[in-house]
Amino acid sequence: MIGYTLRFTLMTALLGIAIVAPARAEEAYDPWPGLVQDIFSNRPMNDGTDVIGIEMPYRAEDAAIVPVTLRSKLSAGDSRRIRSITLVIDRNPAPMAAKFELGTDANVTEISTRVRVNNYTDVHAVAELSDGQLYVAKTYVKASGGCSAPAVKNPEEARNRLGQMRYRQFAREDTPASRTREAQIMIGHPNNSGLQMDQVTHFYIPAFFVNQLRLTQDDSLVLAMEGGISISEDPNLRFTYVSNGAKHFRAEAKDTDGHVFRNAWDVEKSGT
């Protein structure tokens, strides 16, 4: 009886190790070094504490629409500027969520959007500066299932809204002489991730998302985005920039099916 009990105890312990070990191994695995190689060709990463900030909720209310804000932390006297910001959600199926190119003269200092988060994960923001160096900051988010979450809008409504754009300009507390603007672009698009299941057919819905967005004041670049499956349904960008006096704000978006969507707005008549 003692021998049987001992064997049972040892078997239970071994099974416990077999069950727990993979979970612990998964938690211990850090995908970031591999992502630095795959996305950034192993370029050196500098501490971005004083360069780029990333803000996300520690525990997301909805993993399919997690807010994220990227903010320049360069001091006013710094002669460098941020050329681009790459947003990486380490444990997502396609980790590179978006790459933002910042217009040379637009002085974009803040970008906010909404993303899908598929697992508890680190999220990195990598800024490339005009000195050619990369600077990284990170945060941690507790969320899961965002990439496979069903679409909020039904297919017919999504089709009717496809490519519709809205532009908003917000009042700021700056002095009237300030040329700084805060604006928002919203695009009607399902942004299917390829991991969502059709609730009727039970087949996976093919990936279909906005992969390019270009925003200009007249013909001068403000902000361009290369997007992936991690950008939430109905892509939404809110950002700051400096006006060059242009009368029109323009947007051009492309998706993975080759659709091209364009619109333009009179800046002076755009309200809050």
Score class of each variant (00 low, 15 high):
Tyr4Arg: 13
Thr5Phe: 13
Thr5His: 12
Leu6Arg: 06
Leu6Val: 12
Phe8Ala: 15
Met11Asn: 09
Ala18Pro: 08
Ala18Val: 12
Ile19Pro: 07
Val20Cys: 13
Arg24Val: 15
Glu27Lys: 11
Asp30Tyr: 00
Pro33Phe: 08
Gly34His: 00
Val36Trp: 05
Ile39Ser: 08
Met45Cys: 02
Asn46Ala: 05
Asn46Ile: 06
Val51Ile: 11
Gly53Ile: 06
Glu55Pro: 08
Tyr58Arg: 13
Val66Leu: 07
Val66Asn: 06
Pro67Gly: 09
Arg71Asp: 03
Arg71Gly: 05
Lys73Ile: 08
Gly77Met: 02
Gly77Asn: 11
Ser79Cys: 04
Ser79Val: 13
Ile82Gly: 10
Ser84Asp: 04
Thr86Tyr: 04
Asn92Lys: 06
Leu102Arg: 03
Asp105Asn: 14
Thr113Leu: 09
Val115Arg: 07
Val117Lys: 08
Val117Glu: 02
Asn119Trp: 13
Asn119Ala: 15
Tyr120Val: 14
Val123Cys: 00
Glu128Asn: 10
Glu128Val: 05
Leu134Gly: 00
Leu134Val: 00
Tyr140Cys: 08
Tyr140Pro: 10
Tyr140Glu: 11
Val141Lys: 08
Lys142Gln: 13
Cys147Asp: 12
Ser148Tyr: 01
Pro150Asn: 01
Lys153Ala: 11
Arg159Met: 13
Asn160Ala: 13
Arg161Ser: 11
Arg161Ala: 12
Gln164Trp: 11
Met165Asp: 02
Gln169Cys: 12
Arg172Pro: 03
Thr175Leu: 14
Ala183Gly: 06
Met186Thr: 15
Met186Val: 15
Ile187Trp: 09
Gly188Lys: 02
Gly194Ile: 03
Leu195Asn: 01
Val200Cys: 00
Phe203Thr: 14
Pro206Lys: 00
Leu215Asp: 04
Gln217Phe: 04
Gln217Met: 09
Gln217Trp: 03
Val222Arg: 05
Ile229Ser: 11
Ile231Asn: 08
Ile231Ser: 01
Asn236Lys: 10
Phe239Leu: 09
Thr240Phe: 04
Asn244His: 10
His248Leu: 15
Asp255Gly: 03
Asp255Ile: 04
Asp257Met: 13
Val260Gln: 05
Asn263Val: 06
Ala264Cys: 10
Asp266Lys: 08
Val267Glu: 07
Lys269Ile: 10
Ser270Lys: 03
Thr272Val: 13
